[in-house]
Structures are given as C-alpha cells and as structure tokens.
Amino acid sequence: MSVDLQTVKRVAHLARIAVSEEDAERMTGELNAILGFVEQLNEVDVSGVEPMTSVTPMEMKKRRDVVADGGKAADIVANAPATEENFFLVPKVVE
C-alpha cells in the first residue's frame, strides 16, 4: 500500500500537524519508503496467531479505589502556557 499527497494531508490533519504543500510532498516520499519497508510483514503466515496484548504475562495491578493523592491544582497547571485561577486557557471554542 502507498499514500498519495491527499492522504498525507488528511493524516496530518488527523494528527493535528500543520503541513505546507512542500512538507506534504516530502512526507509522501518518506512515508512511502517506510510503508514499502513494512510491506514484507504480509508474507508472514499468522493464521491462528493471537495479536500480542502484553509482552510479559501478568495480571494487571489494580489500586484500591480510594483517594490517595490530590489537592495539586497549582502543580498541575504550573507548566501551562496560559492559565487563570488554576484553569487552562484555550482559544474560544463556542460561538
């Protein structure tokens, strides 16, 4: 399978990365080189093979359903580019 310029632009939008016409053209070539490389996986017979879900067989650890941490609003917003009263500020999304 390979991608065309339109697909690259669509994927870039899905990934929320702005691309110029020039970027998209360059990426088309690069992505096709990578997709061409991974194509060889199709020759592997995987009939009856389960997809891997966990690399080490283990039961997922579960924490007790109790409040163990919190009260850190100031720490959480400390690295944000724009905040007000411990809220993240973003451009207006509702008209």
Binding site: V38, L41, N42, V44, V46, V49, E50, P51, M52, T53
Partner: peptide
C-alpha cells in the same frame, strides 16, 4: 498484523 508477528 504487526502485533501477531510480534507474538511469533
């Protein structure tokens, strides 16, 4: 497909 190959 890749996750199946990974198991192999």
């Amino acid at each position: 497909q890749a996750q199946k190959v990974r198991n192999l």
